[in-house]
Design a protein around this nucleic acid. Sequence first.
DNA 1: GGTCCACCGGAAACCGCGGAGG
DNA 2: CCTCCGCGGTTTCCGGTGGACC
Length: 500
Amino acid sequence: MTANDSPSEDGTPNEERDQSFAVDVEDVLEDGMLDETDSGSQGLFDDLLSGEPIFENKEVLRPSYTPHELPHRSDQINKMATILVAALRGETPSNILIYGKTGTGKTASAKFVSQELEQTSKKYDVPCEVEYINCEVTDTQYRVLAQLANKFIEQNEAHVERRLSDLADLREAVEEGVTAAEATPFEDIGGIDSRVDELEGELEDMEPVPMTGWPTDRVYKEFFEAVDYRERVVVIMLDEIDKLVEKSGDDTLYNLSRMNSELDNSRVSIMGISNDLKFTDFLDPRVKSSLGEEEIVFPPYDANQLRDILQHRADIAFEDAALTDDVIPLCAAFAAQEHGDARRALDLLRTAGELAERSQSEHVDESHVRKAQDKIELDRVVEVVRTLPTQSKLVLFSIILLEKNGVHNVNTGEVFNIYKRLCEEVDADVLTQRRVTDLISELDMLGIVNAIVVSKGRYGRTKEISLSVPIEETEAVLLADSRLSEIEEIQPFVQARFDN
DNA sequence: GGTCCACCGGAAACCGCGGAGG
DNA sequence: CCTCCGCGGTTTCCGGTGGACC
């Protein structure tokens, strides 16, 4: 449905704000209930606000939420920690490559570990930083480098400004009579001033990299210098790293992985996160070996593990006793069928809760979960159909027209005839039957239609095609396409053909 | 058993397009 | 700037096929 529900792993850093916001909403809910009993007047929203609230904090169920505990991932987390602890000793940690399908907790675990790492580094005052980049959003070498460069330039600026204010304090102290030599390495105020000038000069040089326009090697140089500006260990987290390689090759990774040999002050370590287990096949062997020094695999969750995860989050997300007992096992079972995707399971649970809320029932029960499953499935289909290429839409529409006229298990020939006529109607070029059979097979792969080859003996051999999605909704989506919306007159034609 | 329908699906050629490279 | 190459989508060509019917 909306963009919010799309399964993107965007790392929006405003969870805390969202949570506090969610709490405010709950407060409003309470107030609303009181007001209603007082005044007795029924406004538009009063109905919706009345009744028991089901959610206590819905944000916990959203994909962007980073949990503080990740059940069944302690092995992976510990392994990451044992590798990254080198950073806290000032050594370079090995590069890490993390594999796992969507919704197996890769990003969440990695973010959790990096938060811990940064906190610990502050505690012991070891300079160590983690930079997160989502390569699906930042998908070219230039953008990756520019983003990193700007992050570090910004930090360096802050660092220099801090030093400047320290020096200003010091200058004051010296003027008040403390001998400079006692407190500082500077001999007198003149020494401090010249150091201030020096730093201000450096500050001048730190300009951010523009989002476009520079040659890539200049951006690289800029990034390199920003990182090497002072002593530290930097962990670069590249999420969806397979997307980056797919779209812009392995140059970026090559450059990043050989940086260490040229850096004087700092150390860089790369942490790649990939959905695709085989993506290293496309890499330069040198990059492959340096990047995959350590590999961590995140296997899909099974139904029991999913149940733990859901239980864990549901405790926070829902009001006490808002869920009936079978809700969580059912969500877990559904999601386990879908390759153990935890995000999917959480989505299901949240949608079930929303449906319950909307229908104003006091509990979330099994029926809501089933409805939620249907709704998510429908949303998926709508999305797939909506983004289909025009030719495929025409083919699908032909099948729908036939189906609507009571022809089930249509064969390729019939579909092709209708399709041809449709093409004339909307002024699209007509593809060959050969090609149309391929399109039908694609629709089959997407689960929109079901096509099996059957032999009708004497009367040939063909695909029997039947629709496997709800007719009305799908048709509505197709008609929403500007090119297909003009079709209306085709109905009599199908009828005529059918009469033959 | 042979025929033959009506399409399947592999192979290869073709065609426009965009991007790398001269 | 032009040229060439690779690529995805498409067309052309064609051999293949399971089983109802003769």
